[in-house]
C-alpha cells in the first residue's frame, strides 16, 4: 500500500515541527526517515500513523484520504521506540492483543488466534518465550515482541520509530540484517525513523534526509551519497572536507569565488611536493583497516582529512611535515550558501 503525505504542517506551541513536508512512499518499499534529533522525523511518522494530527496537509493510503481517521481506523502497524509492550501481559497476550480487541463479529476464534500468535512468535524467533512477561526479556527480545504484536493485525503499512535506538551496538547490527531479511519476505510497505546514517544505508531502499522540519532530499542510498542535494545532506552522511575557493580552484577550475568543494576523506589523496607549500601533513594515524592522514592549512580552522588504504600508504608513505597538494578523485560543488564553515 503506497503512502502519500502532502504539504504536512505541524507545530508544537510555537516550534515548527514540520514545514510543508511532502513524502511519497511506494508500495512494498522500505523507506528511512533520516535526520538529527529534532528535525521532525518522528512527528512525520506519527502523522502518518494518525497518532498526531497536523495543522495542515493530507495523508493518503493508496490514493484514499485518511487524514481524518485516527490511529485506530488507519490499520497501520506501529512500533514504538521503547516498544510500549503491555507490562502486565505475557508475550503471547501482547501479540494476541490486536486480535482480541476486535469487535466480536470480526474476532477470530480462540484457536485461530493461538495459531496466528504462535506462527508470529516463530517468525520473530521467540517460540519458547510465549509465557514470559516483558520485564523478563532482553532488549532485543522485547523489540521482536513489539514487531510481532504490530504484525499480528496484518497491517499493510508498518511504521517503526527508532527501531534499534534502545539496543546496544552489538545486537543492533544483527537485528538490522534480520529485519531487512524479514521485509524481503513479507513485503509490507515500511517506514522507519533513524538518526544513524549507517542504519539507514544498510536497511532502506530509499532514504529521506530531514532537517529542521523539511525533507532535504529523497533518494536511493547511492544517489544520496554521490549526488547530495545540499551541503546539509553532504555533511550529515559522514565526514567531509569543505574546501574554499582558494584551495579547490586548482583542481575544480571553478571561477565562482564563493563556491565550496565537498570532498570525502576516501576520495582525497595528497601529492607530495618537493617545493615549499602552504599545506603540510600534521598527523598520520594507523586505524587498522586504513590510515588516516591529516594536513593543515593556515587559513583553515580544521585539518583536511584523507583516508588511505593500507597498501597505498605503504607504496607512497607520507610523513608529518611533508608539503603536499590536494588530488581528489571525486567532489561535489555547492554555491554561496555553503560557504560558512
Amino acid at each position: 500500500m503506497s503512502i502519500e503525505a502532502l504539504d504536512i504542517e505541524h507545530r508544537y506551541g510555537r516550534t515548527v515541527a514540520l514545514d510543508k513536508v511532502s513524502l511519497g512512499v511506494r508500495s512494498g518499499e522500505l523507506l528511512a526517515l533520516l535526520g538529527p534529533s529534532g528535525c521532525g522525523k518522528t512527528t512525520l511518522l506519527r502523522v502518518i500513523a494518525g497518532l498526531e494530527f497536523p495543522v495542515a496537509g493530507r495523508v493518503r493510503f493508496e490514493g484514499r484520504d485518511v487524514s481524518r481517521l485516527g490511529a485506530r481506523e488507519r490499520h497501520v502497524g506501529f512500533m514504538f521506540q521503547h516498544y510500549a509492550l503491555f507490562r502486565h501481559l505475557t508475550v503471547f497476550e501482547n501479540v494476541a492483543f490486536g486480535l482480541r480487541v476486535r469487535p466480536f463479529w470480526r474476532r477470530p476464534k480462540r484457536a485461530v488466534i493461538a495459531a496466528k500468535v504462535n506462527e508470529l512468535l516463530e517468525l520473530v524467533q521467540l517460540g519458547g518465550l510465549a509465557a514470559r512477561y516483558p520485564a523478563q526479556l532482553s532488549g532485543g527480545q522485547r523489540q521482536r515482541v513489539a514487531l510481532a504484536r504490530a504484525l499480528a493485525v496484518q497491517p499493510e503499512i508498518l511504521l517503526l520509530d527508532e527501531p534499534f535506538g534502545a539496543l546496544d551496538a552489538r545486537v543492533r547490527g544483527e537485528l538490522r540484517r534480520w529485519l531487512r531479511g524479514l521485509h524481503d519476505r513479507i513485503h509490507v510497505t515500511s517506514v522507519f525513523v533513524t538518526h544513524d546514517q549507517e542504519e539507514a544505508f544498510e536497511l532502506a531502499d530509499r532514504i529521506a534526509v530531514m532537517s529542521a522540519g523539511r525533507i532535504e532530499q529523497l533518494a536511493d542510498p547511492e544517489t544520496l551519497y554521490t549526488k547530495p542535494a545540499s551541503p546539509f545532506v553532504c555533511r550529515f552522511l559522514g565526514e567531509v572536507n569543505e574546501l574554499p575557493f582558494a584551495l579547490h580552484a586548482a583542481f575544480t577550475r571553478s571561477r565562482d569565488e564563493r563556491s565550496t568543494a565537498f570532498v570525502r576523506p576516501h576520495d582525497l589523496a595528497f601529492e607530495r611536493l618537493d617545493a615549499d607549500g602552504a599545506l603540510a601533513i600534521s598527523s598520520v594515524r594507523d586505524l587498522g583497516p586504513g590510515v588516516r592522514i591529516e594536513a593543515r592549512h593556515a587559513s583553515l580552522a580544521r585539518p583536511i582529512v584523507a583516508s588511505y588504504a593500507r597498501e597505498r600508504h605503504a607504496a607512497e608513505p607520507l610523513r608529518v611535515g611533508d608539503r603536499v597538494a590536494l588530488a581528489p578523485r571525486h567532489w561535489v560543488m555547492f554555491g554561496d550558501e555553503a560557504g560558512h564553515s
Partner: peptide
C-alpha cells in the same frame, strides 16, 4: 505509550482503559 500502542492495534477508548 502503552495506550497509544493499544490504539494503533485497534482498541476502542473503553477497551484501552479497561485492558
Amino acid at each position: 505509550e502503552e495506550e497509544q500502542a493499544a490504539r494503533t492495534l485497534g482498541a476502542s477508548g473503553f477497551t484501552m482503559f479497561w485492558r
